[in-house]
Design a protein around this nucleic acid. Structure first.
Length: 913
RNA sequence: GGGGGAUUAGCUCAGUUGGUUAGAGCGCUUGCUUGACAUGCAAGAGGUCGGCAGUUCAAAUCUGCCAUCUCCCA
């Protein structure tokens, strides 16, 4: 603590040093401590092979801010980190690597060998993001790092599956799924993204097998002519008069195998669209599939799983992929005369969120989950047991649950949790009924498999990654293993307190976690104990300056590590939070990060200046500092800065209660920079020269800085820790986080205990002095004397005003750069300005230009007059006097008086010229 | 088609339950190597608060309609 503080803050060394110190001392360990209120967070697990991007920075900074504040409030804080195995993304990445380096596919290697490669990849490249989070300063309990594919975690995933199966919530069914022809797997509805897609719509003529009267054909429109070969009917609305005689007749299929297909009536047909007729292709469209079911139509599949057309599509198309096939189909139809028109068309097409390609509706056998505890999941949010911030997301959440569909949980991948289902050898899987699934001689479902594995074949598919991450708050605390739960403090840390995440995964993850929490905790417990978290904070998306999402492909995302190296982790954290209001998207602006860095440097230098101002005394406890403060010596500036400190403390308390951090950071900024540095430290410079006042003034500064460091620590943990030690607030054996943050209330009480009741009126008086200072500087600048230090201010004031000014005359003179500031009773012929504490005349020693002075005063007078007119108008309105609150009317009256007095004084100055 | 969100200074954003002259950061202009900080200090310019109507003594703030941008769901 005797170390002198360097001239500029250099984050690099400080950050590395403190992070290792925190780690070595187990500062982030989430301990179950009796008597401490728990506060826990689970990290939204990033993709294990992911790297840090700006979205992570925002999301994790918020979590770190919250958890560090909880620590300072004396809570048992626990932030659980970890990563997600990200089935499709990781498998695709490894497959690509395999193809590029060895020219092999996963099938060339076989399942077991391929999985070895994925694990090797994970060992080599995985968890990089967790190391990056450390550079950001994240105070996760790293001992508790989890991975969704770890053995214990896997066991909990499979346990959930088995229990849900036993409860009858899981079934196997051949249904329409969203098929990704790139990843060769089914996807859940949530993984499909509707994108407006430009293409063509084709008007096609289907010839009647036998003409009916003058009808020789039916015309319909489609965007997918390549699937005509799989058409099994043409549907029209049963009440459509245009087609009433045609229902029951047949048309020739214009592509593929030449065959007559029936015209059927079905209410699903939109009479307005495409002439009122619809080609029915049950294998390739959801609506068509349902129509087919209703009319008992066959299912013809013309697409292979990888999107290549087969023989059913017709000899001309077989072997082509679906997009080439579409063009070819149009050509063939044009040649045959069946294509009447081809026009540009835009429609919404489902795309695989991961692979980016259009998905195919495809009929396959999959495992499905009927969501458990749907009603309860709605109830806990409606009742406020789980609170969303901002609250509007509750509506989105409830709406989704109202329209919830069964979840396709199987994925045709290898990387993931293999579904714990065994089929009896030789069993025909394509004809299994619901009853067969419950027949233990045919199907075995368990955690450890059948006792006679040689007679069984395990299901090939794995579970959707989200079917593992929905257990995150449970499994990371040891569920379902009782011993592990005890070890990990399940009863202490579950439910977690706050979840911070992006609204883009409200369905994927948040809603499902709530259902899982309710399903897998004991029904004997109250709902408050069963939900996975009590608060959900939705942070916005970080966008670039043009408002675009940051993405790798656009290359518009700065590398957070670069930002950390340029501005420091604290600067990045603080700067980003300043522009991240609750639930609102953030347009990233690097200048704000720079301003965050500058703020850190300002804090650094203020502390450095404190050190240079006088000897450091005992800062080891608030009591020690308070004992050095002399209440009798407290002047208005002392009262005002303490009032501002208490207010800032309150603003922070409110900010944390409401998750409004942008507001909190701005208050921290303006308090420290404007209230403390620009005013308090400046005025204190004079007092520090006074031997008898020095100790008191410096003690006050020590108190303010101490409280400020505590308030600021969650946002900027590195610099605050460094300064905490440099200024002797803590010894070598402890850390800032070991200190209890005083609330505004306890701090005020501690001050009162020392005989110091903070006087509110002092802030007003200081406010007036600050105004006088600004006006004086303004006058100097206007007179071209800004750089002079030897000017004289003469004050014409009544006794009351002079009484407010006189005690501060010398420090004011110093602040505004004047030799003296003294009272006058004359009316000197000098440039003047009217202030709340009298009229200030500036003597620069130069000759005065009366014309310029007159112009200046008249401009000022016009400005004042404008406001007088406005205020006068309000006050002469009887309705205002009758209806407005008395305090408001009184305020207007006082304002009018002040303005009039000012105008009169300006008039007097003008007359004197 | 249904539902959110946004629109305030050149740029990025604050603005609590309506109430004196709408704020900050960055940028811009001017002057300062004033003994903590040029990552700084001081002063200044810059806004008919998207538009129109309404409620009210009083609207950036509340209500309705419209416009533009954006997100989610179908």
């Amino acid at each position: 603590m005797s170390t002198t503080i360097a001239k500029a803050y250099d984050p690099r060394d400080v950050e590395a040093r403190w992070y290792s110190a925190w780690m070595e001392n187990g500062c982030f360990a989430g301990r179950m401590e009796k008597g401490k209120e728990p506060y826990s967070i689970v990290i939204p697990p990033p993709n294990v092979t992911g790297i840090l991007h700006m979205g992570h920075v925002l999301n994790n900074t918020l979590q770190d801010v919250i958890i560090r504040r909880a620590r300072l409030e004396g809570k048992a804080a626990c932030w659980i980190p970890g990563t997600d195995h990200a089935g499709i993304a990781t498998q695709t990445m490894v497959e690509k690597h395999l193809r590029e380096t060895e020219g092999k596919t996963r099938r060339d290697l076989g399942r077991e060998e391929f999985l070895k490669r994925v694990w090797a990849w994970r060992e080599e490249k995985g968890d990089k993001i967790l190391r990056q989070l450390r550079e950001l300063g994240c105070s996760c309990d790293w001992e508790r790092t989890h991975f969704t594919m770890d053995p214990a975690y896997s066991r909990s995933v499979l346990t959930a599956f088995v229990r849900l199966f036993e409860a009858g919530n899981i079934y196997r069914g051949k249904r329409m799924v969203n098929w990704c022809p790139a990843s060769l797997t089914a996807l859940s509805d949530e993984e499909v993204e509707m994108r407006p897609t430009k293409g063509f719509i084709y008007r096609i003529r289907y010839e009647l097998v036998e003409p009916v009267g003058e009808h020789t054909h039916v015309v319909l429109e489609t965007t997918r002519p390549e699937t005509i070969g799989a058409d099994v009917a043409v549907a029209v609305h049963p009440e459509d008069p245009r087609f009433s005689q045609l229902i029951g007749k047949q048309v020739w299929r214009p592509l593929g195998e030449r065959a007559g297909i029936p015209i059927i009536g079905d209410r699903a047909v939109d009479m307005e669209f495409g002439g009122g007729a619809l080609k029915v292709t049950p294998a390739h469209d959801r609506v068509d599939f349902e129509i087919g079911q209703r009319h008992d139509l066959p299912v013809l599949d013309c697409l292979e799983s990888n999107g290549i057309l087969n023989d059913i599509a017709g000899p001309e198309l077989a072997g082509l992929d679906r997009f080439a096939g579409r063009k070819r189909a149009a050509e063939v139809l044009r040649e045959s005369g069946a294509l009447l028109e081809e026009k540009p068309y835009e429609n919404n097409v489902g795309h695989s969120q991961r692979a980016g390609v259009p998905i195919e509706p495809r009929l396959t056998w999959q495992w499905w989950l009927r969501y458990p505890k749907v009603e309860e999941a709605k109830q806990v949010v409606r009742d406020g047991i789980v609170k969303m911030h901002p609250d509007r997301w509750s509506k989105v959440y409830l709406n989704w649950l109202d329209n919830i569909q069964d979840w396709c949980v199987s994925r045709q991948l290898w990387w993931g949790h293999r579904i714990p289902v065994w089929y009896a050898k030789g069993l025909e899987r394509d004809s299994l009924t619901e009853a067969d699934l419950r027949d233990p001689s045919k199907i075995h479902v368990s955690l450890d498999g059948p006792p006679d594995p040689e007679n069984w074949e395990r299901e090939e598919d794995v579970l959707d990654t989200w079917a593992s991450s929905w257990l995150w708050p449970l499994a990371t605390l040891g569920w379902p293993d009782a011993g592990a739960q005890e070890r990990d403090g399940f009863d202490t840390f579950y439910p977690t307190t706050t979840l911070a995440t992006g609204a883009d995964i409200i369905f994927f993850w948040v809603a499902r976690m709530i259902m899982a929490g309710l399903e897998f905790t004991s029904p004997d417990l109250p709902m408050e104990r069963r939900v996975p978290f009590r608060h959900v904070y939705f942070n916005g998306i970080v966008r670039d300056k043009q408002g675009r999402k940051m993405s790798k492909t656009l290359g518009n995302s700065p590398d957070p590590l670069d930002l950390i190296h340029t501005y420091g982790a604290d600067g990045l954290r603080f700067g980003l939070l300043q522009i991240a209001p609750l639930g609102q998207d953030v347009k990233f602006d690097e200048t704000r990060v720079e301003s965050g860095k500058n703020f850190c440097n300002k804090l650094w230098n203020a502390c450095r200046f404190r050190q240079m101002s006088g000897p450091m005394a005992d800062n080891g406890s608030p009591e020690a500092i308070l004992s050095r403060i002399d209440p009798a010596r407290c002047d208005d500036d002392d009262h005002a800065i303490l009032a501002a400190l208490l207010d800032t403390t309150r603003v922070l308390e409110r900010g944390f209660a409401e998750f409004e951090f942008a507001n909190a950071t701005q208050r921290l900024y303006s308090f420290f920079w404007n209230d403390f540095c620009d005013w308090y430290v400046e005025v204190a410079k004079t007092r520090v020269q006074d031997e008898t006042a020095r100790d008191h003034v410096l003690a006050l500064q020590d108190l303010v800085i101490r409280q400020f460091l505590l308030l600021f620590e969650p946002f900027a943990p590195f610099i605050t820790e460094e300064l905490w030690h440099l200024l002797g607030y803590g010894d070598d054996k402890s850390f800032l986080q070991d200190t209890r943050l005083e609330s505004a209330e306890t701090l005020a009480a501690a001050l009162a205990g020392r005989g110091l009741e903070v006087e509110a009126a002092a802030s007003d008086r200081v406010g007036r002095l600050r105004e006088v200072a600004t006006l004086a500087r303004q006058l100097k600048a206007e007179q071209g004397a800004a750089q002079k230090r030897d000017v004289v201010f003469q004050v014409l004031a009544d006794d009351a005003s002079w009484g407010g000014l006189a005690p501060h005359a010398s420090k004011l003179a110093r602040l505004v750069g004047a030799a003296t500031l003294e009272r006058t009773s004359a009316e000197p012929a000098l440039p003047a300005v009217v202030t709340p504490l009298g009229t200030l005349y500036l003597d620069t020693g130069e000759k005065v230009d009366p014309a310029a002075e007159r112009a200046r005063l008249e401009k000022e007078r016009a400005e004042v007059e404008k406001h007088i007119v406005g205020t006068d108008k309000r006050l002469s309105n009887q309705a205002f006097l009758n209806k407005a609150a008395p305090s408001v009317v009184e305020g207007a009256r006082r304002q009018l008086e002040t303005l009039q007095a000012k105008r009169d004084e300006i008039d007097r100055l003008l007359a004197a010229l």
